[in-house]
Each structure stands twice: as C-alpha cells, then as structure tokens.
Design a protein around this nucleic acid. Structure first.
Lengths: 226, 226
DNA sequence: ATATTTGACAATGTATGCATTAATTGCGTA
DNA sequence: TACGCAATTAATGCATACATTGTCAAATAT
C-alpha cells in the first residue's frame, strides 16, 4: 500500500486518463460542466499536451465532448440516453450469457461468477448496498468475460462506466434488489447447464427489469440529468 | 466538386484522422504494418502532433495499436476477430430491426430502405457486385438508423468500417447474393407490419448466414489476415 | 434601444525542442 | 563462439512557444 510501489512509471497521458476518469466518476467534475485545458493541466500538475491526449480518448469513449473554444464538457446522460445504453447492455450481455452457456463451462470456470453471487447474498443480508453494487459489477463483468467475445466485453465495460454515476445515485432510492439475486442465480444455472436459450432469455429479462426500474427512478422530477 | 468548397478549414488533426482512415481502408497502410510518427507526419505534410492525436482516436476505435517504440501498427483481423465482430453486428442490427418494427413506421419512413433493396435488385440483374455492396451498406446503415438508437448506429458503423477490407476481398469469391435480397425484403416487410419478433429473427438469421459465409471464405488457406 | 461592426482577448491548434528511455549494436571476456 | 555489458541511437513523451481564430464586448450607427 506504499504510494510508490509502481514499477512502471506510467506516462502522464495515462495518469491524466485515469485521474480524469476518477474525477468524472466521483462527480468532482460534474456532468454538464465545462473545463479548459489549462485548468485541468494545472489541476493535475502537467502540461496541456497529456490532458489533450487523454481527453481525445475520453471523447472517443463518449464521456466528454470537445467544444473547441469552450472547453471540454462532461457529458450528462438524459433518461433517453440511459435507455439507449441499457438496450445495448441488455442485448450484448444476453449474447454473452448465451455464448457462455454454449461453451460447456465447468463449475470451476464459473467460480468467480459464483463468488460474486455469494457476495451479493451476503451484502443483501447485511443491507450493504455499496458492497452489493460492487459484487453486481463483478458479476456482470465476469459474465461478459465468460462470453468469450473480447469486443463485447469492451463495449459493455465502456457503457457501464457511463452509467456508473446514475447507478450510484439511484442505489439508495430503490428497494433492496432481492429479485436481482434470484435472476443471477438463474443465469448461473443456465450457463452451467449449457442451456443457451434460457441463459439468454433469463438474462435479458433481468436486464430489462433493471433498466425499467432505473429509468423510472430517473424520471422522477428533479432528476433530469446525471 | 471544386476542391476548395469547404467553408470550415478543418483542423489538421481532423484531416489526419480522415486521411489515415482512408489510407487504412484503401490498403495503402496494409494491415500488420508499422508506422512511425515522423513517417506519417511527412506523408501527410504536417507535424507529429496532429498525427499523434489522430492515432489516439483510431486506437480507441480499434483500428490501430500504439506500440511505444515500434510505431503504430495497423491492426489486422483474424478469422476469430471477424467472428467476434459479426456476433456484435448480428446482435445489434437485429435489435435495431426489432425496434424499427416497434416504432410503427410508415412506407414513407422506409423509403430509403426500399430504395436500397431496389438498388440491390438492379445490381444483381446486372451482376454489378460493387453496386450491390454499396446498396447493401446503405440498407444496413439505414436499418440501424431506423432502429432509433444512435449509439447502436455508431457501434455498427464502426465495426462495419473494420470489416470493410474483408468484405471487399471476398466480394468476388462468393456466389451472387440472391438469398440476401430475399432476406432484406422479408425484414422490410416485418418492419412495415410492425412484427417485432419476425423482424428480429429474420434479420438475425440473415446476418448469421452472411457471417458463416464470410468466415468460411476467410478460412481458406492463404487468407489468414486482412 | 437595437443592431452591427470592430477590435482585443483568450483558448486552442500546431510545430518544435528537449529529456527520457527502449532497442540495438559493438566490444570485451569467458 | 557465445554471452553479457555498455554506449549509441532513435523514437516517443512532454513541455512550451507561437500562430490562428472564435468569442465577447464596447462603441458606433440606425
């Protein structure tokens, strides 16, 4: 845990990328706010160049918008954006579930998935929503990994980043997600069974429900953008 | 068609992005080749900075890989890569077809789609494969547009770019795509009918067939990478 | 008062130079 | 000959300076 255990001296561009992501996800750079190159450069203690380069990558990932004389705008997501993203997540994760089921994976292969489910159960009993959200993240990330399509995993990861803020906001607005855990177990079972169709459909239903819940919460007055 | 009709004097970074894309798609920068910053800078008549910035964007889009002292590598696609990409295209285009069917679109809304189909028919009768490929592109682009999810359209567009080289190569290796045209018409009819399930399944089958054909051709000896 | 033009300013786009560092080559030694 | 080490080289990472250009505001004309 020492501060300087890093062997590779990461480039400033890389640091800028990581730190800017953190600033965005933490809400330190709020959605909708604008930021000039010099401002961010000073803030991170480097020159404009690595900031620009990091911002280009973040733009390609859909997190910011470059507005030539107005600075970088941290993109906010409307309810419609959220629906678009959830459609994609539903679709691609369901594909991953189907493919995972098709691969004839053993219980050992599914250990991480099983662990994530167990962690979610624990988190639910202790009503620890943050721990639950983290385990849920792990479940979904591992699911797309098991799907065996690296590009699907990358896209899903990217969009999960984008909705992270929204999920954090709604985490305490929703009831405890008992149904989610049941869904996860059903998906797990279908994958282990090699039942592609069930894996896909079960997961699709799970995601569709989650999506509906989220968008309903987000459409409450005063929640316009995140 | 005058060379200087452009009102906005596009930035060099933008030009670099466009021209590098063209060089890649045209095969002028062959898949697998490495290129240094200075080389490309000289080639495009600008300094290293806009080249670097363009390359970062291209890297985020999966077209090149930045290899710190070895130059930028133009990524080649193996048969496995192609399968990954086609899985995604199948999935997201089928989603688009379903959503398009759900939107209650009128015949007028589907005019571009219908035109693309007609163009493909014409191209088939005259056995003009290039015209067919272009119309096919238009059909798929319009389909995802009609799906109403801009992010889906963006992803599909990106991956279509990536497989363009492969499709060009195989264009003359395959039989004339009569079945494709029948598929397209079926998808069109389902969308007009508002039959979501048929739209999705029909398009999925269409894409799966196309994918199988392509990957078989690509697995012929001597075709390793594209 | 409103619209328009001009001008100053400020932010970005781009080029360039320097420091850093990985790769490579050549040399010495076993 | 083969191996390892050191020096050289070359490419990039980053900072910085400068040119360009959009923006804003003040001033003028209608």
């Amino acid at each position: 845990m020492t501060p300087e255990t890093r062997s590779t001296p990461r480039s400033n561009t890389q640091r800028a990328l990581d730190e800017l992501r953190d600033l965005i996800f933490s809400g330190d750079l709020p959605a909708g706010s604008d930021h000039l190159e010099v401002e961010l450069a000073q803030r991170l203690g480097m020159s404009r160049t690595p900031i620009r380069e990091a911002m280009l990558t973040l733009e390609a990932q859909g997190l910011v918008e470059v507005r030539p004389r107005k600075g970088f705008r941290i993109l906010s997501l409307s309810a419609e954006d959220m629906e678009e993203i959830y459609q994609i997540l539903t679709e691609l994760e369901s594909l991953a579930a189907e493919r995972a089921a098709a691969r004839g994976l053993s219980e050992a292969d599914l250990a991480i998935l099983a662990q994530a489910i167990a962690d979610m159960d624990d988190a639910l009993s202790s009503e620890d929503r943050i721990a639950w959200a983290k385990a849920d993240d792990r479940f979904h990330a591992e699911l797309v990994r098991l799907g065996g399509n690296a590009r699907v995993a990358a896209i899903v990861g990217m969009y999960n980043d984008q909705v992270r803020r929204a999920r954090a906001t709604t985490l305490y607005m929703r009831p405890l997600p008992h149904q989610s855990n049941a869904d996860h177990r059903a998906v797990y079972a279908a994958i282990l069974d090699g039942d592609q169709e069930t894996a896909r459909k079960t997961h699709a239903k799970h995601r569709t429900n989650a999506s509906r819940l989220l968008t309903e919460l987000l459409q409450r007055p005063g929640m316009k953008h995140l």
